[in-house]
Amino acid sequence: MPTLCRPIAEGGGGFDYRLAMAIPDVWIKLLKEKSDEDWQVGDISWTLVNRRWSEKNIAYSESHDQALVGDKTIAHWLFDSQIYSHMSVLSERTPIVERGLALHKMIRLLTYALGGEGWLNFEGNEFGHPEWLDFPRAGNNDSYHYARRLFYLSDDETLRYKYLNAWDQAMNACEEQYKWLSAKNTFISRQHEGDKVLVFERGDHGLLFIFNFHTHKSFPDYRIGCTRCGKYKVVLNSDSKTYDGLGRVSDTQVFLTEDTKWDERPFSFKVYTPCRSVLVLALTGDVK
Rank of each mutant, 00 (worst) to 15 (best):
Q66M: 12
V89G: 04
D204K: 14
M1T: 12
G115M: 05
H214A: 09
R137A: 12
L236Y: 01
G42M: 12
H64K: 02
R228A: 08
T252I: 07
S268Y: 05
Y232G: 01
K56V: 09
C174K: 09
S143P: 02
Y232F: 12
N141R: 13
V69W: 02
K162N: 12
N57E: 08
H86W: 01
V49Q: 07
F200G: 00
E55N: 06
D259C: 12
N125P: 00
R190G: 00
Q191R: 14
S61W: 08
D71E: 11
S54D: 15
F135N: 08
A166M: 07
D221F: 12
E92N: 03
W46T: 15
L48H: 12
V235I: 15
Y84K: 11
R93S: 13
S45Q: 08
R265P: 12
G245S: 04
A147V: 05
S35L: 12
W132A: 15
H76N: 09
T47Q: 06
I58C: 04
K217C: 15
P95C: 09
G128F: 00
A22K: 09
V287W: 03
F219E: 02
K270E: 12
K270Y: 13
G203W: 07
F269Q: 01
A20R: 00
H145R: 10
D263W: 11
N185R: 11
R228W: 03
D244F: 05
T111M: 02
R148I: 14
Y144Q: 05
L181I: 02
E201H: 13
D38V: 05
H205V: 03
G194P: 06
G100P: 03
G206T: 07
F127E: 04
Q253E: 13
E126V: 02
F187V: 15
G115D: 00
Y243G: 02
H192V: 09
R265D: 09
W39F: 15
A170T: 10
Y222Q: 08
R149L: 06
K288M: 05
D286M: 06
C174L: 15
P24Y: 01
Y222E: 06
A102F: 02
V97P: 08
E123P: 00
H216T: 11
D251T: 04
F267L: 02
V69H: 14
I23M: 03
L68K: 10
V41N: 05
Q191V: 14
R18G: 10
L246H: 09
V287S: 08
H205T: 07
D16H: 11
K233C: 03
R190P: 00
L283W: 03
